[in-house]
Design a protein around this nucleic acid. Structure first.
Ligand SMILES: [Mn+2]
Ligand SMILES: [Mn+2]
Ligand SMILES: [Zn+2]
Ligand SMILES: [Zn+2]
Lengths: 142, 142
DNA sequence: CCTCTAAATGATAATAATTCCTATTTAGAT
DNA sequence: ATCTAAATAGGAATTATTATCATTTAGAGG
């Protein structure tokens, strides 16, 4: 059983077909997906699963910190498994996501935290811009 | 005339009462605001200005890179003037904000952007944690 | 295995955020 | 002062997300 399903079970939540499928889809596609993306994919196997169930479960997964929720170019939120501490660059036009292989937060921040007696619990970083393809299409100077 | 209005004019856009007021509100309140926040404030002086106009102009300002758009905890997008390129640490309990005197984004990011032919347009950064006072009150290990 | 029940779901209504539409107004160029 | 493209007001439409509620079901306990 996947580590995600185990965590769900260990917290007393039930392992249901929608939950299995949502996690399967997110594991297979590695990129951030909207709730609709996930619902569309799931419906290929189980058309009766409703979008509301996808939203409900994504919210649960976010609350359990198993999934990260953030916004790219579009209006709909993006969801991605939080295997690890990750950061992205996001194209404001096509929504393409480039995962960073390192944390772009300067270590210097720890000095400031110490100085103010501030305990850093989490950080969120979002880098917006234009991917190569969209730059060309829209004639933005590169 | 404010630097924002000048930029608007220099690009051939007209300087209108809604545009003046939107910028005035954003300059006065320094914190990120939703479109509704801005509309509500503006309506105190000019009740006839419509929410749609606020959205239209915020989109224009974002496109012109004069305003940053991002999402916080809630559903609605947040908007903030981008002239003061600033970052904060925010206490999750009392909301205290500590301004950083430097940008905590590693310069290394530029190498990655170059590598992927990605043009960085803006970045949003939030550091959450507990301030000294709240740490003590709630007995969180420091 | 059965039974039972709280948890979860599906279908759909409701809400909230944002964009679209169109008749009317207006900023600013001439 | 005149003119016109740009901008606006007001409201409808569209999306994203959440709420409601009748029905189903996962999994605990016998
Ligand atoms: Mn990081
Ligand atoms: Mn910065
Ligand atoms: Zn792109
Ligand atoms: Zn605090």
């Amino acid at each position: 059983m996947s580590v995600f399903l185990e965590k769900i079970a260990s917290r007393g939540y039930k392992i249901t077909p929608p939950r299995r499928l949502i996690l399967k889809v997110m594991e297979e596609k590695k990129v951030p997906l909207t709730a609709e993306d996930i619902a569309r994919e799931i419906k290929k196997e189980r058309p009766e699963i409703s979008l509301a169930t996808v939203y409900r479960n994504l919210n649960l997964l976010v609350e359990m910190d198993l999934v990260n929720k953030f916004h790219g170019g579009g209006e709909a939120a993006l969801y991605q498994l939080s295997w690890e501490h990750e950061h992205y660059m996001i194209c404001l036009i096509c929504g393409k996501v480039i995962n960073l292989t390192f944390c772009p937060l300067k270590e210097e921040i720890n000095d400031v935290a110490l100085q103010y007696d501030f305990m850093i619990k989490s950080h969120y970083f979002q880098i917006n811009g234009y991917c190569g393809a969209c730059k060309q299409k829209s004639g933005i100077g590169g």
